[in-house]
Simulated assay, not measured.
Amino acid sequence: MTTNVPRPEVLRYTAFSSAPDGGNLAGVVLDAAALGDSDMLAIAAELGYSESAFLTAPPAALGGQEGRAYSIRYFSPKAEVPFCGHATVAAAVALAERIGPGELLFATRAGTVPVEVAEESGAVRATLTSVEPYIEEVADADLDEALAALDWPAADLDPAFSPRIAFAGARHLVLAAATRARLADLAYDFPRLEALMHRLDLTTVQLVWRESATVFHVRDPFPVGGVVEDPATGAAAAAFGAYARELGLVPDDAVLFLHQGEDLGRPGELTVTLRAGDQRVRVSGAGARIG
């Protein structure tokens, strides 16, 4: 950090849970104007959360938003990432506590992300709208390498869910487990999976198991961020919504509920909303400040 410049306040929030012991923790710096890249990375590494958010003034293109538009960057303990859903929710909740609920606009490396914050049943909830998503095939050799790194036999995959790479701000490899027990048993080769993810430019691997037509359980290995597993992953939830719609696994109009963090002792819920005629995906969740 620049000499003689005071360190800005670092807030701590959880996202996708209204309880401090649930959801995914994120650091939030509401005024990061004095921080360089190395400063932000150092703060993220010191916190040790999967990501932290750093806010500055918006670009000129987002001017005229009456103080409700911001530039936002996200750092894991190891690197910057283009977009992070849970840190977006955390930052939006932090702002709402200071400037009131309503609409926000975030300029991210992945594109412009609108967020709406509202109070519901005593909790503060934020709904982000993703950038335009896309889905692409994954090469057989890359799939084989991912399964080998996870130590998952191909027979343990759900044949109804074809493996794909999905993007809604960041890239995720989507793999579906045939059983809840398979999803619960996660002990992977960290360096091997990390190397594959760097080669494919993946942020996480989105592992899913379908409980019912609209309810899913998910887990997200995140070795490229220096974290074994992400407890609640908004960017992956958005990508999964686009994936499920693209493959015809859910209707074009649908509300999906993703449960994540249960296997880590930090339960959270992510609500994914799909709208016919709108390719972008909405991801909602509660947030709360922690000590």
Rank of each mutant, 00 (worst) to 15 (best):
Thr3Met: 12
Pro6Thr: 00
Glu9Arg: 08
Glu9Met: 04
Val10Ile: 14
Leu11His: 11
Arg12Thr: 12
Pro20Asp: 11
Asp21Pro: 02
Asn24His: 05
Leu25Val: 13
Gly27Lys: 09
Val28Thr: 05
Val29Tyr: 09
Leu41Arg: 15
Ala42Gly: 13
Ile43Pro: 12
Ala45Tyr: 03
Ala45Glu: 12
Glu46Leu: 11
Glu46Gly: 06
Glu51Phe: 09
Ala57His: 03
Ala60Trp: 08
Leu62Arg: 14
Glu66Ser: 08
Glu66Ile: 00
Tyr70Trp: 15
Ser71Tyr: 08
Ile72Ala: 08
Glu80Cys: 05
Val81Gln: 09
Pro82Gly: 12
Cys84Ser: 14
Cys84Lys: 01
His86Pro: 12
Ala91Phe: 02
Ala91Pro: 03
Ala94Tyr: 04
Arg98Asn: 03
Gly100Gln: 08
Gly102Met: 08
Ala107Gln: 11
Arg109Gln: 14
Thr112Ser: 03
Val113Trp: 01
Pro114Asn: 07
Val115Gln: 01
Glu116Lys: 15
Val117Met: 05
Ser121Leu: 13
Gly122Trp: 08
Val124Thr: 15
Arg125Asn: 12
Ala126Trp: 10
Ser130Asp: 08
Val131Ala: 01
Glu132Phe: 02
Pro133Tyr: 02
Tyr134Ala: 12
Ile135Pro: 01
Ile135Tyr: 00
Asp144Ile: 12
Asp144Trp: 06
Glu145Ala: 14
Ala148Leu: 11
Leu150Glu: 04
Asp156Lys: 11
Phe161Val: 05
Pro163Phe: 09
Arg164Cys: 05
Ile165Leu: 03
Ile165Met: 00
Ala166Val: 00
Phe167Cys: 10
Arg171Asn: 14
His172Thr: 06
Leu173Pro: 03
Leu173Met: 03
Leu175Gly: 07
Ala176Cys: 06
Arg180Tyr: 06
Arg180Pro: 07
Ala187Gln: 10
Tyr188Lys: 05
Tyr188Glu: 05
Phe190Asp: 05
Pro191Met: 14
Pro191His: 13
Arg192Gly: 11
Arg192Phe: 00
Arg192Trp: 00
Glu194Thr: 03
Leu196Met: 07
His198Pro: 09
His198Asn: 07
Leu202Met: 03
Thr204Tyr: 04
Arg210Ile: 05
Glu211Ser: 08
Ala213Asn: 02
Thr214Phe: 15
His217Pro: 02
Arg219Asn: 09
Phe222Ala: 15
Pro223His: 01
Gly225Glu: 14
Val227Gly: 06
Glu229Met: 14
Pro231Gln: 06
Pro231Asp: 04
Ala232Cys: 09
Ala235Val: 06
Ala237His: 11
Ala238Arg: 09
Phe240Asp: 01
Ala242Pro: 10
Tyr243Arg: 04
Leu249Cys: 08
Asp252Cys: 06
Asp252Tyr: 13
Ala254Phe: 14
Val255Gln: 11
Phe257Ala: 14
Gln260Glu: 13
Gly265Lys: 10
Pro267Ile: 10
Gly268Cys: 03
Glu269Ile: 15
Glu269Tyr: 01
Leu270Ala: 06
Thr273Met: 02
Leu274Gln: 13
Leu274Ile: 04
Arg275Met: 11
Val283Gln: 02
Val283Pro: 04
Ser284His: 04
Ser284Phe: 00
Ala288Trp: 00
Ile290Met: 04
Ile290Cys: 09
